[in-house]
Design a protein around this nucleic acid. Structure first.
Length: 221
DNA sequence: GCGACAG
DNA sequence: ATCTTGTCGC
């Protein structure tokens, strides 16, 4: 797929904050995509050579049967460090490279990280969605910000994630008796819809099949 | 000022 | 993220 030009990449946290604050107005948390969804994609990162090289993997799966349709891989020098709240600046450049190689444009992308459940409401899922104009959902393995009540052990249980009196996402149990995941709107996908798709993409394991496939590729040598 | 802190 | 073996439990 073709990717239009975007903003320049920052070299400092100050510049990154400016970009996030400027992009946050472009975030859309309402459902704005056509159904039925035929393809869902997962993105994941890996690093080589002491972290100096970033490796991005994209996996496109059919929906709802979740069969692998296509996968791509891309490498590029790592230019931004990992700083909580600024993950997208470290990972998106390589992700865009991998997405450019994709033939089947996915209807929704499930990102490894937060959506609006972010200090400035611009987690990696929102950032990526805005840049490529594809609906995204944030599915993180751990908490960045927010608080929530305890939730039942059964799959499907959920609790709102609250930050500054605002619901920014949900803690969702995708598998009974297993640690939950943190779901939030990325771009053009509402929270209820995001939860629905995450559950439909996790028929067997804690993490979505999309990210599991991408993860396997991003980790392979 | 003191903690917390996606991958 | 990454470094790393075995081990507990369904």
């Amino acid at each position: 797929m073709k990717i239009n030009q975007h903003h320049t990449w920052p070299s400092t946290v100050e510049e990154a904050i400016t970009i996030q604050e400027q992009l946050r107005s472009q975030v859309i948390t309402e459902d704005k995509f056509k159904e039925p969804v035929q393809y869902v994609a997962g993105v994941d990162m890996g690093f080589e050579a002491d972290g100096t090289i970033s490796r991005a993997a994209v996996a496109v799966l059919s929906f709802p049967d979740l069969q692998v349709i296509e996968t791509t891989l891309a490498h590029r020098p790592t230019t931004f460090p990992y700083i909580p709240g600024f993950l997208s600046f470290r990972e998106i450049p390589a992700v865009l490279d991998a997405l450019e190689k994709i033939t089947r444009i996915p209807d929704i992308i499930l990102c490894d990280g937060q959506g609006i459940a972010h200090p400035r409401r611009l987690g990696i899922a929102c950032h990526l969605g805005i840049l490529v104009d594809i609906p995204t959902i944030g599915v993180a393995k751990s908490l960045l910000i927010g608080k929530h009540e305890e939730l039942p052990e059964t799959r499907g249980s959920r609790q709102p994630l609250i930050h500054r009196g605002e619901t920014i996402g949900a803690v969702l149990r995708t598998r009974t008796g297993v640690k939950p995941v943190y779901v939030s709107s990325g771009y053009k996908v509402s929270l209820p819809t995001a939860i629905d798709y995450v559950l439909r993409c996790t028929p067997k394991y804690r993490l979505p099949e999309t990210t599991r496939v991408a993860d396997k590729l991003a980790s392979a040598r």
